[in-house]
């Protein structure tokens, strides 16, 4: 029986085992959310203490890069969810295609983010690399926050792309109708998306009308 092969100690029921698999992943993702929670708390503190300067600094950000990247990540999340549904519906080929498409969108996100970093390098607004220093102490603070937040997010995105690729290369994972591996990898990818959903108003939208 496929069900019995799938089952391993100490579980006696597939349902319990699946719940434990997902619980482990969700608790880990909870700790990741805490990590980014600290960054959001720092952003809120900056904004509460210096509301005008925060909006002015956010206004310097590349709004269209950020918006396009939000759309890309939301779409890649759809593809990850489609991969899980395809695996559960016993359609391994579609699961594989959806996983690779999500990886491709992740690469597109990184390309756009890289372009944005390049423009910021040329504009001389990267703390530590700015030839004439930043315009104000607050801009320095905001740019530090921006690079820590988006840099840490990009590292998570790269890790997510590696995990998606592992799932896309693993035939057994795609043929598993319980979608254990693909399901957990997709959960991680959705978290990367969730964090960006909140980074978008924090970094880009605050000063959009400037």
């Amino acid at each position: 029986m496929a069900e019995e092969r799938h089952l391993h100690e100490p579980f006696h029921e597939v349902e319990r085992q699946e719940e434990a698999d997902r619980l482990g992943m969700l608790v880990f993702l909870g700790s990741e959310a805490m990590l980014f929670g600290g960054i959001f708390a720092a952003a809120m503190t900056l904004r509460l203490l210096h509301p005008q300067e925060y909006i002015a600094a956010s206004g310097q950000m590349k709004l269209w890069h950020g918006t396009l990247n939000t759309a890309i990540l939301l779409t890649s999340s759809l593809l990850a969810a489609v991969a899980v549904e395809a695996a559960r519906g016993n359609r391994p080929l579609w699961a594989r295609r959806a996983l690779w498409a999500a990886v491709a969108l992740g690469a597109a996100f990184l390309g756009i983010k890289g372009h944005e970093y390049c423009l910021e390098y040329r504009a001389g607004v990267i703390p530590g690399l700015a030839p004439f220093g930043l315009r104000s102490a607050f801009e320095q603070l905001f740019m530090n926050l921006y690079f820590v937040a988006t840099g840490l997010h990009a590292l998570h995105l790269i890790a997510g792309m590696v995990l998606l690729s592992i799932a896309a290369l693993n035939r057994r994972a795609q043929e598993d109708v319980h979608a254990v591996l693909i399901g957990n990898v997709a959960l991680y990818w959705h978290l990367v998306d969730l964090i960006w959903v909140f980074l978008y108003p924090t970094i880009y939208l605050a000063g959009a009308a400037q």
Binding site: L26, G30, A33, G37
Partner: peptide
């Protein structure tokens, strides 16, 4: 488990 993480944030 998911709600707890959000609640603490």
């Amino acid at each position: 488990a998911t709600g707890a993480a959000l609640l603490w944030i």
